[in-house]
């Protein structure tokens, strides 16, 4: 099955097109070429290539331990792959520290929420704006002119995001006191505050009930639609993945076993085997 399925899936047209719901999908934004990531003897990612196109919602799925989160960590610069190349915005990306990757316009959320618990919601989201705040320490220490102005301008942006995600009432609440679902939303807000070109979401709906999932799905679609942000997400809820995403990559044991539109992936024999299991007789 692999021999017939894979070439056909690789052969994706890269022309710009418009989706059924009117979103424009452009050329390749991020291209991952033959990425291999090892931890000692363990091969977490084995020779995986796929791309993410401008404006699309790209899902990465697979069973536990398939290497999905590692893949996201490679994209966000947290892991350096031993082999392979990461191309971003048409340029090959050299080895760089995560904070530099962030400055290139890649933001992310984490599977286990990684908010700054000791800070308020507002301060947490304001940290997302750090790359836009350039005032020197002298101006900051006397809080005059540029520091004050910059703070206000960035606050304005943050307030837009707060409105967008409907978290006005918890603005001044310390994050440690929030329930799980809201924390996830605040984390999304912090990532959005960075105005990313590419937004990576690691299981944005893990542990949520149906309503929270619906809310989060709506936010993800709105972000993509209104800000034109390209999104790559990892998710286990197949219903959500199939509804949200334009294209899906399927991983299993560090290998790519499928790549294509939700419909293509759903009917891929190897994907079905990975998810449902297959008898070996």
């Amino acid at each position: 099955m692999n021999e017939t399925a894979t070439p056909q899936m690789q052969d994706q047209t890269l022309e710009d097109y418009t989706t059924a719901d009117g979103r424009k999908i452009g050329g390749v934004m991020m291209d991952l070429k033959s990425i291999t990531l090892r931890f000692g003897g363990l091969i977490a990612i084995n020779d995986i290539s796929f791309n993410i196109r401008q404006g699309e919602i790209r899902a990465i799925i697979g069973p536990n331990g398939a290497g999905k989160s590692s893949m996201l960590n490679v994209i966000s610069g947290f892991y350096q792959p031993q082999e392979g190349e990461v191309w971003f915005m048409g340029k090959k990306r050299p080895t760089m520290r995560p904070y530099k990757v962030a400055r290139q316009g890649i933001a992310r959320t984490f599977q286990n929420i990684a908010l700054f618990e000791g800070m308020t919601v507002l301060d947490n989201i304001m940290t997302g704006r750090l790359n836009f705040m350039k005032t020197g320490w002298v101006a900051q220490s006397i809080w005059l002119g540029s520091a004050k102005k910059e703070e206000t301008i960035n606050r304005q942006k943050v307030e837009e995001i707060i409105d967008f995600l409907e978290i006005q009432t918890i603005r001044k609440t310390p994050v440690g006191r929030l329930p799980y679902g809201l924390k996830k939303r605040v984390e999304l807000a912090r990532a959005l505050a960075a105005e990313p070109n590419l937004l990576l979401l690691d299981e944005p709906m893990a542990g949520m009930n149906v309503e929270e999932k619906e809310d989060m799905s709506r936010f993800i679609l709105d972000v993509n639609d209104e800000f034109g942000t390209t999104i790559a997400l990892i998710e286990h809820d197949m219903g959500v993945v199939m509804d949200l995403s334009d294209r899906v990559v399927v991983m299993d044991y560090g290998k790519k076993i499928g790549d294509g539109t939700p419909d293509e992936v759903r009917n891929n024999q190897e994907v079905i085997e990975a998810y449902l299991g297959v008898s070996h007789d």
């Binding site: 966000s76 947290f78 520290r97 995560p98 904070y99 990757v101 962030a102 400055r103 933001a107 992310r108 984490f110 990684a114 908010l115 700054f116 618990e117 000791g118 800070m119 301060d123 304001m126 940290t127 997302g128 704006r129 750090l130 790359n131 705040m133 005032t135 320490w137 900051q140 220490s141 006397i142 809080w143 520091a147 910059e150 703070e151 912090r190 960075a194």
Partner: peptide
């Protein structure tokens, strides 16, 4: 003044979760 501005937020981000701080920039 330093702790309420972007410098302070960087420090607090490092304090609360240094990995997330680095990924945010």
């Amino acid at each position: 003044n330093m702790t309420r501005g972007s410098m302070g937020r960087k420090w607090m981000a490092i304090r609360d979760m240094d990995i997330a701080a680095e990924i945010i920039g």
